[in-house]
Design a protein around this nucleic acid. Structure first.
Lengths: 200, 200
DNA sequence: GCACTGACAAAATCTGAATTCTGTCAGTAG
DNA sequence: CTACTGACAGAATTCAGATTTTGTCAGTGC
């Protein structure tokens, strides 16, 4: 059967495949077009430049990280518990990828290093999610009267060690899970949390 | 007058000069030897390899960071105040260097990226300093009964955003000082500090 | 004997000519 | 008209040959 008309989505799928196979350094627009059986000129009808295509792939990858977290952020239950789960989930997603497919993780890292604006938007989104959890906790009286945006950003910064890609090398430490717990026990108190999840 | 005998210290001084001038990528052992007016073979009497020389330079640079902090760590006054000052001092040293001499900072960063063991020792030293402050706070009853090594490491990890070189790009934000304060107000509560945030 | 030199082999890095890639656009096919 | 092609110029990348650098060591001179 004739392939469906060339869509932006199809190009992104192909680009992702090629990136996985060849890595970011060796992936060319010609490669992506060849994978689709079209000329590379066609790709430029959908993306103004290679950088825009890379940005779009990065955006999709990051969305796959932030969407499941969105569910957790807006879920039920005590805010402190939700926030801890959210942080553990974020850390687990990043750390699993780094551990199980280091090459793909390196690809991901390089791509995002160049897509600064896309990453900034992603970080804003994550900050907003944390801030929502904090705001819920403040509203329910579970947390002290902190400023949710400020505290949200602070929580994300304080846990950067466990989810920011530039610390990936440290994630090999077997105690990394306990270390996140230790940081959590520091910061959860700072939010004025009522039920500081005991784990002695 | 004849130059003093070639010492390890003199080589390190020359290596530092050359690194500042040419950057880490273009600095060769031959350059360092030329700066000293000796043959490069002589340098190898004092260092078994170029990497060892680079490690020694990195060790000296890092010592210049950790030594003043040592004074703060073992100083007088309430532990919480001392710890905050220590953190601000560490962040300020790194951030000032990154701001005022970005090229030298980049050189420093590259060099330390390769001197993994040296950096690990430095981090251990910093962790020990924080742990000492925490231990003092616990001993004086100012902090809750936390485990000093665990809490010390957690404090350093939670503030990595503000002192770890891989976050240097984020330090340009004008609110960076306030952001450290926000993280501090989270973690100081977690140590059970008396003053800043109530948590009963 | 001791501190250093300088020539050397192997490894790493540089250079520049040849190739490949990016981004554009007039042209083709349906 | 729309969706795509393919040829093209300039920019970026590759690759092999030339050069530099690393690390060793026998030799020099004090």
């Amino acid at each position: 059967m004739a392939p469906a008309a060339l869509t932006t989505e199809a190009i992104l799928d192909a680009a992702e495949d090629v990136l996985r196979r060849y890595g970011p350094a060796k992936t060319t627009v010609v490669d992506v077009a060849r994978a689709l059986g079209v000329s590379h000129g066609s790709v430029y009808r959908h993306f103004p430049a290679k950088a825009a295509l890379q940005d779009a792939v990065a955006r999709r990858w990051l969305a796959r990280v932030s969407e499941p977290l969105e569910v957790t952020a807006d879920g039920e239950g005590p805010a402190a518990q939700r926030l801890l789960r959210w942080l553990q989930q974020l850390a687990a997603v990043k750390q699993r990828m780094a551990r199980e497919d280091p090459e793909l993780f390196a690809t991901f890292e390089r791509l995002t290093a160049e897509a600064r604006e896309v990453v900034a938007a992603h970080v804003d989104q994550l900050t907003a999610q944390v801030s929502r959890i904090v705001a819920a906790g403040v509203a329910s009286g579970e947390f002290a009267q902190v400023d949710p945006p400020t505290a949200g950003r602070a929580v994300l910064q304080a846990t950067a060690w466990f989810h920011h890609p530039s610390h990936a090398a440290e994630w090999r430490s077997p105690g990394i899970g306990a270390e996140l717990d230790a940081v959590w026990s520091l910061i959860s108190a700072g939010l004025g949390a009522r039920s500081p999840v005991r784990r002695d």
